[in-house]
Amino acid sequence: MKGSGAATSPAQEPTLALEKLELRLLLEAIHGSTGIDFRGYSPASLKRRVLARVKAEELPSISALQARALHAPECMQRLIAGITVHYTTLFRDPGFWVAFREKVVPILAGERSLRLWVAGCSSGEEVYSLAIVLAEAGLVERTRIYATDLSENLVEQARAGVFPLRLMKEYTANYLAAGGTRSFSDYYSADHEAAILSAALRRRIVFARHCLATEGSFNEFHAILCRNVTIYFAAALQARVHELLFASLAPAGILALGRAEAMRGLAHEDEFEPLDVRERIFQRKSAATA
């Protein structure tokens, strides 16, 4: 919000301004205490997530949450989990996976060995969807998929590959809409309330902690999936991550963004060709055409 408008409501203005200050201090505290840097995040959804933690911890203010988080590691862990949690599904946006099968798989099939990166893998839904698609395309044996997230807890969760059994009906529908041709139940075994994904899917995946906000490129990839990850970042951090993704992409490599993410205005916009405009799949121009 604007801090200088004389016409703004006098009763609410101090509360909002104070909240903004408290949020800034909290992010400093998290960074100083854990090294995790949320300072470049998009403020509107970040504030909502933090306020949800204030409420869940039954505290009166963001400042009170800061005090507790600094003195109680388990509160800090809950706070970081609350900020980093992502809401996603297996085969989210089935249309994306149809486009991936039709337009990306034939390009990848030309490579003898493949390195793929799911940047911001959250609890693993995207990376397992990718592994299934590559397995069905006969490419998985020559592929190494790197799945990273800044949250150690989420990386652990992703590595485990266990999802609530009650979601399998929805995921099966997504899988079929995404062009899946087998029986989705072949990919998991049910154990009470849990669906445990087949260990074969995990064999070609490397799970690791990596922070897009602070760390650099660690390899060169034939394709990078970073869908609905940078929408939580403010513009400056988005530009940084875009730079990082570009630097991590082989010539003619594929970059997949979320449906709501524009390439427009980003530094390397002109160095990509769209492969699928609606599903936000881009191909980096090869050295010859760039």
Partner: peptide
Amino acid sequence: HLLVEDGHFALSLD
């Protein structure tokens, strides 16, 4: 979700 920030929109999948 469609959120409004200072001068621009921000989206979220919360």
